[in-house]
Every structure is written in C-alpha cells, then in structure tokens.
C-alpha cells in the first residue's frame, strides 16, 4: 500500500539530482563568466533555484495547513509537516549559500539587509512550527497547532519576496527573464526544474513517513514510536545496552 509512493518519491529525487547535475555542468563549464563577478557569479544557478524551492514548499505547506484545518484529516497534517520540513532545509541551505556569495561580492558574510533579515526570520518561524509540533502529544491539538503556526509563519513568505521592492536593500532585486543573459538563463532554469523535482520527492517521502507515524500512533497511542529527546518523563533511568555490566 505504501510502497508505490516511496518509489514515486525516490524516482522524483533521482530525476531531480540527475537534472541538477546537467544544470550545474552547464552552469559551471559551459555558461560564460558573469561580467562583473566572474566565476563567483555561478553560484546564481544554485542560490536562486533554492530560494524558489523554499518559497514554493512553504506555499504548499500553507495550502496543506488550510486543508488540515478545514477537513481535520491527518493526510493534510502529514503534508503540512513534510513541506515545512523540506522548505526549512532549503531555507538553511539558502542562508549558507547567500552568505558564501555575499563575502566575495558585497564584502561581508552577513548584514541586516531587509531581504537577509526576513529570510532569517523565515527559517526561525518555520523552525518554531517544527519545534511546536514536537511538543504536543494529542494528535488533534498538534494538527491544529501545526496548521495555525504554519499559516502565521507563511506571512513572511510574500514579505521575503517583496522585501527588495519595499525597502532599500543591498540584495539584488528579483531576477527575471530580462535581467539574466540567455546563456545563463538556460542552466538557471534547468537547475530550477531540478529543485522542483527534489522538493517534490523529499515532500512525498517525508509525507509518507509522517502519515505512517500518525497511523501507528492512533493504533497504539501510548507506545512512543521513536525515542523522543524532548520528553524526559520516564527516562530518569539510564538506558543500558542488553548484557552490559551494571
């Protein structure tokens, strides 16, 4: 029953990584150097797709959170969690990539520019969603808390996108078809398609795992399905490996 979606997820990931390899081969070896930044400018091909991926995953999570609250079905809850997690991984990658790009071009790893600040808030806000989820045991309350927190955290997504338009910024404005030369647009678009596949693959795999966990939890609510470091009650006895001397 579950096997098919694991295969679909794995296939999407494989397509994504293969496409990414092609895109970055073109980006690194075929596309010309950027006129001002030289080879450093090639990080464009990973940074911009990562940003699009993160914002799309959070948008998906926002829709799933609405679905979760409207229907109360655990599939939507699992989907919300899956996309928040995948999006948060991409947001952290985004911050690291941006910082590595900023040092040689702007001259600093970090500055409290509106785009950078709102992106850091994005990682923190959705990090809180995941933390909150770990802290609540009762499934219906947990689904509600996850959804409400996701909807509130999502407010930052359009703010990140428009930050470079609304405020004075050091960060470059939104890239578009006219602002990137066509030999550079090609690897950028290939890498963006790759990120969409990777994001979808990760989300489907994570969704399936979370759904299985929720089903198992309902079948045996008192049995913790995994060791949970945040729940300390009952763990005051030191854990001992079988057969070890006491």
């Amino acid at each position: 029953m579950t096997h098919r979606s694991y295969i679909v997820g794995a296939v999407l990931l494989a397509i994504g990584f293969a496409t990414m390899a092609v895109g970055h081969f073109i980006g690194l070896f075929v596309a010309p150097r950027e006129a001002m930044m030289g080879d450093v400018g090639r990080i464009l091909y990973v940074h911009v797709p990562t940003a699009w991926g993160a914002l799309l995953l959070y948008s998906g999570a926002f829709i799933a959170a609405i679905g979760s609250m409207w229907t109360g079905r655990r599939g939507w809850d699992a989907a919300t969690t899956a996309m928040v997690e995948a999006g948060t991984v991409m947001t952290f990658l985004l911050l690291v990539q941006g910082s590595l790009w900023a040092r040689p071009t702007w001259g600093t790893y970090w500055t409290w520019d509106p785009r950078l600040t709102t992106s850091a808030v994005l990682a923190a806000a959705f990090g809180v969603v995941l933390l909150l989820r770990r802290l609540i045991d009762q499934p219906a309350r947990r689904a509600m808390a996850t959804s409400v927190a996701t909807i509130v955290a999502f407010v930052d997504v359009p703010i990140v996108y428009f930050s470079v338009k609304w405020w004075n910024s050091l960060h470059q404005p939104v890239s578009n078809l006219g602002s990137v030369d066509s030999p550079m647009m090609q690897p950028l678009l290939i890498a963006a398609i790759a990120i969409m596949f990777i994001g979808a693959g990760l989300s489907i795999l994570r969704f399936r795992i979370e759904l299985a966990r929720l089903v198992a939890e309902e079948a045996a609510p008192d049995l913790p399905d995994m060791p949970d470091p945040l729940h300390l009650e009952g763990s005051d006895k030191p854990v001992q490996a079988e057969g070890s001397p006491s």
Partner: peptide, 10 residues
C-alpha cells in the same frame, strides 16, 4: 559593501 544589480551578463 558593494551592491550588485539583478542583472547577470556575459
């Protein structure tokens, strides 16, 4: 700090 535009040119 140096500002780069959103234009990427060969």
């Amino acid at each position: 700090m140096v500002k780069h535009s959103n234009e990427y040119r060969a």
